[in-house]
């Protein structure tokens, strides 16, 4: 019993969800009572293209352990093309994070439609498991921001 896993670690996870598809998908997960971890906190944005890479960096700076962005499926964007911009921006950001040594598993992009409550909840399960296994984000957190 000596080498026990640290059960105490609860990751902080920020999920950016577009209003039209993934936020509605999360609502559907809710109304279908499909559980996922309370560690996930959702921020509503009009479209995934509203997510500035700066928001993701800020989350890490403030101690988030994982950030996931969800949008409408490619081709189904409420604003026609927003998720394509988002996809390109995130690819660039994630490769940069990779370059500076942040584990690539800490970030994720997933397309979830308004009808995919189950997918939303499964994705969150997976993501929380992944972040829990990666442990605390130590590389990007700005300790000066603690208890701001």
């Amino acid at each position: 019993m000596s080498i026990e896993k640290n059960e105490e670690f609860r990751p902080k996870i920020v999920a950016f969800c577009c209003n039209w598809c993934s936020y509605a998908g999360a609502d559907l997960a809710g109304s279908s009572r499909m559980t996922y971890s309370a560690d996930v906190k959702i921020i509503r944005v009009p479209c995934s293209c509203r997510v500035n890479p700066m928001f993701i960096l800020r989350a890490f700076e403030r101690g988030a352990d994982g950030v996931i962005m969800c949008g409408c499926h490619p081709g189904d964007c409420h604003y026609t093309s927003g998720n394509y911009y988002a996809r390109r921006r995130m690819t660039l950001l994630f490769s940069m994070l990779d370059y500076i040594g942040v584990e690539s598993g800490r970030t994720r992009v997933e397309w979830v439609s308004a009808a995919e409550g189950a997918k939303f909840s499964e994705t969150m399960h997976e993501f929380v498991d992944k972040i829990t296994s990666l442990g605390k984000n130590v590389r990007l957190e700005d300790l000066r921001c603690r208890n701001l």
Partner: peptide, 24 residues
């Protein structure tokens, strides 16, 4: 949609009701 707000290199474009400061 906000596409322009993220594209703008000088940070001039912002979205009312979902501003940069609000999301941060």
């Amino acid at each position: 949609c906000g596409a322009c707000t993220v594209t703008c290199p000088s940070g001039a474009m912002d979205l009312q009701g979902f501003s940069n400061r609000q999301i941060l």
